[in-house]
């Protein structure tokens, strides 16, 4: 099945950076009321660079895999660059826009969700939360 490519299942089975970091400067919760999935994204900053990106929470395979990929893609990026990447990832997952971003190569494994309209929000959940965390808001964002 296109939506459950091996790369996706691999991130789901062993998610990267699914933990609470030692220090947290920004965090936000992504909530999908359709299924109750809730992810918290954490950023630790050093000189306006994302020194640590992690997440916690529960979700479907798509939501967890996407969150895992998100932490890898954003790790070590300056804030402005992270914003660009988040926008590009959301545009790709939600609208099928293919970005010229080497850092999103792994995330492209999720493009199969485009065939399943009801699952796109699962894939964008962690990225929506990351965008809210970047805004510096200790807040909850909803997919609806």
């Amino acid at each position: 099945m296109e939506i459950y490519r091996e790369r996706v299942l691999s991130h789901y089975r062993e998610p990267h950076n699914q933990r609470h970091p030692d220090s947290v400067d920004h965090q936000a919760i992504g909530f999908n009321p359709l299924c109750g999935d809730k992810l918290t994204v954490y950023f630790a900053l050093e000189n306006d660079v994302l020194a640590d990106v992690a997440f916690e929470g529960t979700g479907c395979a798509i939501a967890i895999a996407s969150a895992s990929m998100m932490t890898e893609a954003l790790q070590g990026l300056p804030l402005a660059r992270a914003q660009q990447l988040i926008d590009a990832a959301r545009a790709m997952l939600a609208h099928g826009e293919m970005p010229d971003e080497e850092r999103l190569a792994e995330v492209r494994a999720l493009e199969g969700v485009r065939e399943y309209p009801s699952r796109i929000k699962c894939a964008t959940l962690a990225w929506s939360a990351a965008a809210a965390a970047l805004d510096g808001n200790m807040q909850q964002v909803s997919t609806e």
Partner: peptide, 12 residues
């Protein structure tokens, strides 16, 4: 298995 993953595989 999350119910939505189940629903998608079953739909397939």
């Amino acid at each position: 298995i999350h119910p939505h993953d189940l629903g998608t595989v079953l739909d397939h």
